[in-house]
């Protein structure tokens, strides 16, 4: 794939020489093997369809997270089955379970180790808000320590709801101004 950037101030519009199969999936116009699109659309198209989640399985919700990977719900249908336990290889952290004060530091540290761009899904009532554990040891929502993109309700979240959440995350990624982040200092 060859990308021609048209001038320094015009990076929003680019010409791409690529295969016909690239045409679908993002906002683009095609003429004689040339595709005209926005860099944002291209980057978002790539990012949204190759989410590698990092399962931060902390409690009960982690079992449903395993269920999503199982054969009945099969998250592989959406291209997100590549669960990576290493923060360096993943771009979406799924916080599944109760975050206690003792664990919060580790969650934050793993999040910090993830390479940008990165997103966070708070799975289940506990990760969203502390859930039913309003106690001396429970963090009242993981958004107290890391930014959350998608909140999913449920105790535990049903696998369908998690899949829905990941698809909303894809929608969110599609609407991001990604190119700006790439080229601005």
């Amino acid at each position: 794939m060859v990308v021609f950037l048209q001038g320094r101030h015009n990076i929003g519009t680019i010409f791409l020489i690529m295969d016909k199969c690239f045409q679908q999936g993002f906002d683009a116009k095609s003429e004689q093997g040339f595709i005209c699109t926005k860099l944002d659309s291209l980057i978002n198209w790539v990012r949204a369809n190759s989410i590698w989640p990092q399962p931060m399985g902390l409690a009960c919700c982690a079992i449903e997270l395993m269920g999503v990977g199982g054969s009945r719900f099969d998250i592989g249908r959406f291209g997100m089955e590549v669960m990576r336990f290493s923060p360096r290889q993943s771009d979406c952290m799924i916080v599944a379970g109760t975050v206690t004060y003792k664990m919060a530091g580790s969650v934050k540290r793993v999040y910090d180790q993830m390479a940008a761009p990165k997103w966070v899904v708070a799975m289940g009532a506990c990760a969203c808000s502390g859930g039913m554990f309003r106690t001396y040891s429970t963090l009242q929502g993981v958004d107290k320590v890391i930014p959350v993109d998608v909140y999913v309700a449920g105790c535990p979240t049903r696998p369908e709801a998690l899949i829905d959440a990941l698809m909303s995350l894809q929608n969110k990624i599609r609407s991001e101004r990604s190119a700006r982040g790439l080229f601005s200092k």
């Binding site: 902390l58 409690a59 554990f133 040891s137």
Partner: peptide, 11 residues
């Protein structure tokens, strides 16, 4: 251990 201590006995 203790990273998942949610204080259930107290609750």
């Amino acid at each position: 251990v203790g990273q998942l201590h949610r204080g259930q006995e107290k609750m």
